[in-house]
Design a protein around this nucleic acid. Structure first.
Lengths: 199, 199
DNA sequence: AAATACCCTTAAGATATCTTAAGGGTTCAG
DNA sequence: CTGAACCCTTAAGATATCTTAAGGGTATTT
């Protein structure tokens, strides 16, 4: 399909930003990713399931979140176009996940299943580095977020979010951003008013 | 040296918990790690330096922290015996770090330099998975910590810390634990009193 | 096009957490 | 051995953040 090929080029561009790949590697990589369209509010991972895929977002936006005993949702991660998302713990250990991954917009994704990724790792060693680097980037992002959480006020965290994810900031409902920042949406509303007055 | 060999066995045990290694891999791995003793308050990484080593802790305990403009320290990570520590961002990008890594106790560590690790990656592909898994574990730990930070009260976070790191909890000054949890040491003191009364 | 669910804002009162200050205990360095 | 530095605790007042409640706007579904 014409569109399907274009989508896989996005994947290639993402992966080969750090590594150049041979034709054979490209062919194999592309053949192992399957495209899926997800409706708004559709789930690609549900608490209790085993996370069986590593997911790359072509378009749209997904969120990964946990639900506490009282039913509140806490957003752990957003993934929009050109980003990766997966519950690594469940994926590698093949054990039931404690989180949800849900589409916030109609989305198109590319997924690779665990056995196929392992096949890539063993037959094309370069992909070990590729995926190691993807995870390292996400690790640094998380570490930075932890630092924010323990050192910055809610207003500072929100300002940083606006700078770091300007596109997300204008696409997502503030309720979702509040959940990501660890504050209530009412308090975010107050922060936004305060910031507006500072101009 | 007798003790040096024993220390490298700890490293081997840590790495081969997920993978079995050949004699050749073991020999090469061991030859590339160098042992260092660090005094209490000694630094192995200072803001502005490039992080040139991946570090495994044999004994003692290190902390990684950032300092904000007002001079306050925020603990990002502790690493005691049998744990890994490094500023991945500085290490892989070879750019100056924004953090410090300092020994809180007299410590013995094993370090591998970046070129040697890259040599391992290219000549013994298995080590790609090995180190990918080390990072994945740390990633999940961070993700769990973010969830705590955005969803739990300070008292809950402290209780969790006690359960998750019982050894650290009794070894570290509470000021250091407070900084890790993102609260003041005075407030931690109050939390400890409240918890004691709940018994 | 109506009905429903979702979203944003405001504000008042409640709670969690910080700041400052002070005192006493313990460890470390000279 | 001794002063200095660090650590822990307590408490009072200040500030940040949450909870609840309510109203009006916007998007989604029927």
């Amino acid at each position: 399909m014409h569109e399907g090929i274009k989508n896989k080029e996005l994947l290639l561009a993402n992966i080969s930003s750090a590594f150049s790949l041979t034709d054979k590697e490209i062919e194999e990589l592309i053949s192992l990713f399957a495209e899926r369209k997800i409706k708004r509010r559709g789930f690609i991972l549900h608490q209790g399931d085993v996370c069986r895929h590593f997911t790359f977002v072509i378009s749209g936006c997904l969120k990964m979140y946990a639900i506490d005993p009282s039913g509140k949702e806490f957003n752990l991660e957003f993934a929009a176009e050109n980003e990766w998302i997966s519950d690594l713990n469940s994926f590698y250990a093949e054990k039931p996940t404690t989180v949800y991954i849900e589409a916030m917009e109609p989305s198109v994704i590319l997924q690779i299943a665990r056995p196929d990724l392992i096949h890539l790792y063993s037959n094309y060693p370069k992909f070990n580095s590729t995926f190691r680097i993807i995870i390292e980037r996400k690790y640094m992002e998380l570490q930075n977020r932890v630092l924010q959480n323990i050192s910055a006020t809610a207003e500072e965290r929100y300002s940083n979010f606006l700078h770091q994810f300007p596109t997300l900031a204008s696409r997502l409902p503030n309720t979702q951003i509040a959940s990501y920042l660890g504050i209530t949406s009412e308090f975010l509303s107050k922060i936004r008013k305060d910031l507006a007055h500072k101009r």
